[in-house]
Structures are given as C-alpha cells and as structure tokens.
Simulated assay, not measured.
Amino acid sequence: MGKFEHNISLSEGRSPLISLIVVLLLAFSGFQAIGPLIGVLLTLPFFDFNFMQAMEVLSNPVGNEEAKMPIFIIQGLASIIGFIVVPLLYLRFIEKKPLHIFFNSVSLGTVPVFLLTFIVLAFMFVNSIFIEWNANFKFPESMAGLENMLKSLEEAAKTQTEFLTTFNGFSQFFLAFVVIAVIPAIGEELLFRGFVQNLLIRISGNIHIAIWVAGFLFSAFHMQFYGLVPRMLLGVLFGYLYYWSGSLSTAMVAHFINNGFTIIMMYLYQQNLTSLDVDTEESLPLTFLLILFVLFLGLIYFYRNFFLKHKTIG
C-alpha cells in the first residue's frame, strides 16, 4: 500500500506559528477593512450613495432593495482582497514560492469530479443533524447573558442573509452566485487549506490535528456560533479531500459544489421550481440520514483509494 505525503515547505527558516498568525491577520485585515473600503470607493460612482450613506447602508442593509447589488460587489471585492490577493502576495513576497506548490500533477478528471459532487451532496444532508443541534444549542443558566448576546448576533446575521439571498431577478442571483459560490471556493480554500492547514502540519507534525484545527479556524472566521460545528465539519471534509488528493483544486471544487448547490436551490425554491428548502435548520428523517451516511462513507472510501492507487502507481 502507498501512503499520502505532504511536503509543502512553507515558513522555511521562520516560525510556522508566527507565519500562521501573520497570514491570518493579513487576511482578516484585507477582508474586514481594506477590501470593503476599496469596494465602497469603486461602487460609489455607479450608485446613488455618498461615502457616509454607503457605510450606513452596509451596517444595516435590510429593507433597502437598492443596496443589494453594491453590497454584493463590496463583499466580493472584500473576499478577493482578503482571501486571494493578500495570500498570493504573501506567497510571492514572503514565502517566495509559486502558486503551483498547492497543486499536484493529478488532473481533475471525470471520476474525481463525480465523486466530489456526490460526496458533498451526501454530506450536506448528513450535516443537517449537526446544523439542527448547533442551532438549538443551550447554554447553562449561568451563561444566559452570553447565550442572549450570541442569539441576538445570530438573528441579525440571519435577517441580513435572508434579505440578501431573496433574489429579485436573475441578475441578483447571478451576482450572488459569483460572490457566495465562486470567490469563496477559490479564496477560502487557498487561505485555510493551502496556508493554514499546511502551516499547522509544520506546527503540530500531525495531519489530523492540522485538518481539524484548520476546520475550526475556517468556521470561527465566519463568526457565527450557531453554525460553528457544521461549518467546522465541512472544513474538515475539505481538508481531507485536499490531503488525500494532494491538490487544492479538489477542495476548491468541493467548496464550489457546496455553496453553488445551496444558492441554486434557494433560487429555484423562490421561483417555486422545487419544494426542497435547503435553508431549513431541521434535519432529515433518521432512516434517510443513515442511508446517506453509509453512501457518504462509501464514496469517501472510493475517493481516497482512487488517489492512493494513483500515488502508488506513480
């Protein structure tokens, strides 16, 4: 039998922990400050807002239909700057390495894409049990203040998300698809699997610790406690898909399938073209979940063996 190996040498001659902290802080600054500022400045000439009005709309867009398009543009630019531009600049000027270190020579052919598609779809339904559990998590009475604060933040985020993902026309759906499905699939995987996971391998010396901690950081970065566990598990899945294949493209495709399927199904549901509501927090019947879980394990087994066989032959 062969084995999977990761030999991506990031942070050579430097502390991998310091490198991890620096790249996360730079990405966070790009996503939360630099990217949104550039986005606001670029959208102002095209929309009927001044700078202060734009900042006010950004903080509370709900109910302002005209704000949807500029908000999507600003969010897209924030993601591009924070998750793609900043990591690539770090890779080029700090690590002094090419982008292709995250990608091996295995082509992403029909079999891997087929497996990735059904792995992600099966996992999405299996993960619904953790979505329901996390959404209904109860704190001890002594932590009621923290629980109320987190629930308030969650409700505000949910209200804003529902507003932004209620599509009034195909143009809004298409822009949302690019901003929510395409850009994060590339950027978040580049940052959290490409950089964070590989740096954590150097720090811990253990691939499984690296994958789980990277999954936690990926989820924590979204700052939504009541979605922390299911999003962490999704990040862990992406981490193992990347580890077994040796190519970041597999994690990017899996991430795209997850987000893209969700956005498409939301749009179809709003158009009354499907009765499946992917936005629900309720899990599926247990029998159905068990069948999907067994299917998911089987697909994972074939996926892992597909790349293991390739490495052994190679």
Score class of each variant (00 low, 15 high):
Ser128Gln: 04
Met252Lys: 00
Ala220Pro: 10
Leu153Asp: 10
His100Ile: 03
Leu191Ser: 10
Pro98Met: 05
Ser79Trp: 01
Ser245Cys: 05
Phe307Val: 12
Ile129Tyr: 09
Ala144Leu: 11
Val178Phe: 05
Val178Ile: 14
Ile183Gln: 02
Arg193Ala: 03
Pro112Ser: 01
Met265Asn: 04
Asn198Trp: 01
Leu190Val: 02
Phe137Ala: 11
Leu175Tyr: 04
His255Glu: 08
Val182His: 12
Leu115Arg: 01
Ile313Val: 13
Met252Ser: 02
Ile201Glu: 14
Gln32Ala: 15
Ser204Glu: 09
Ala157Gly: 01
Phe51Trp: 14
Gln197Ala: 06
Leu268Trp: 02
Ile183Asn: 09
Ile186Tyr: 03
Glu188Cys: 07
Glu66Tyr: 10
Phe102Met: 08
Ser19Trp: 02
Met232Pro: 03
Met232Ser: 15
Leu41Ser: 04
Ile80Asn: 01
Ile94Cys: 04
Ile211Gly: 11
Lys138His: 06
Ile71Phe: 07
Ile211Arg: 12
Val23Ala: 03
Glu147Thr: 12
Gly235Asn: 08
Gly35Ser: 04
Arg92Asp: 01
Gln270Ile: 07
Asn272Leu: 14
Ser152Leu: 13
Thr280Ala: 13
Gly13Gln: 11
Glu5Val: 06
Met265Phe: 11
Phe288Leu: 15
Glu56Pro: 01
Leu273Met: 14
Asn168Met: 00
Leu292Met: 15
Phe137Cys: 03
Val111Ile: 13
Val23Leu: 08
Ser107Phe: 06
